[in-house]
Amino acid sequence: MPDLLKQLADLLVYRWFGLRAGAHLADALDFFIYDVIKILLLLTAIIFVVSVIRSFFPPEKTRQILGRKRSWVGNILAALLGIVTPFCSCSAVPLFIGFLEAGIPLGVTLSFLISSPTVNEVALIMLLGLFGWKVAVLYIASGVGIAIVAGIILGQLKLERFVEEYVYQIKVGAADYVRPTFRQRATDAWAYTGEILKKVGPWVLVGVGAGALIHGYVPVNWLAKVAGRGNPFAVPIAVLIGVPLYSNAAGTIPIVQALTAKGVPIGTALALMMAVTALSLPEAIILRRVMKPRLLAIYFGVVALAIVFVGYLFNAVIR
């Protein structure tokens, strides 16, 4: 399959456009076309499959599964379910309320809230396409790890009193859940795939374009010295820079690629990306509606520390 795509890109660039192999521009263009087609195909296929799988895990079900579990096992399950339960960042608050109301411990609820944005399928596919399966697997493992560990720590801190009081007074009603037919699941998944592709499509072009330019032109520069292995503080600094920033996962991959191409270790670059996607100012503003400032600060602090830890781990594991 990749060979076929490579041949297609070669055909387009060298045959139809008549560009000479070996020239900077031609090779960059060849690389660009190959990667864009590959990633768009991967995105379409994987998002569709993931959406169908997700339709079997509505939050209502997740809530029931987690309601019966206590800490530890609960945290692990919550982190895993966070990947497959569909929700967008604006649903974080109703989910938070719904989970606490069902008697799910705060730490377990937070494991769930952390894992979902941290392990992002679009980011995963782009990492897989641009860096290979090793980085992709480590990305999932570390995202789940962060969610479990941060949730357990937050659960131990007994922070329930810093949740806004009204949250515990809300009575969550029961909406009728109609089991969708398989046809309905497929239709929904297809519509969702279209929604996502429209949203991240331009970012894929920008990301791969940046990568192609780097591939063709950019030499290793001072960034390698400033943020390279020689600087032990590079990871925490990357996280500090990433937290206030907000972008979607597809938009941060070009940064990761640009940084690694210029000699920044993969762990440092990924720590920056995770800080951007998992923690952000808009998210803080949304969560402020249910969390008091103290809890919000501790939540961000613990997750940021976990990301720093994972950054160092990546740097140590991947050379």
Partner: peptide, 28 residues
Amino acid sequence: LKEIAALGVLMTPGLVIDGKVASQGKVP
């Protein structure tokens, strides 16, 4: 939020027609 939760909607956007939840978590 209280009203949304009272209707049992955990995923936004939700659509309620004549008091019944018709869809949630998606844009039909």
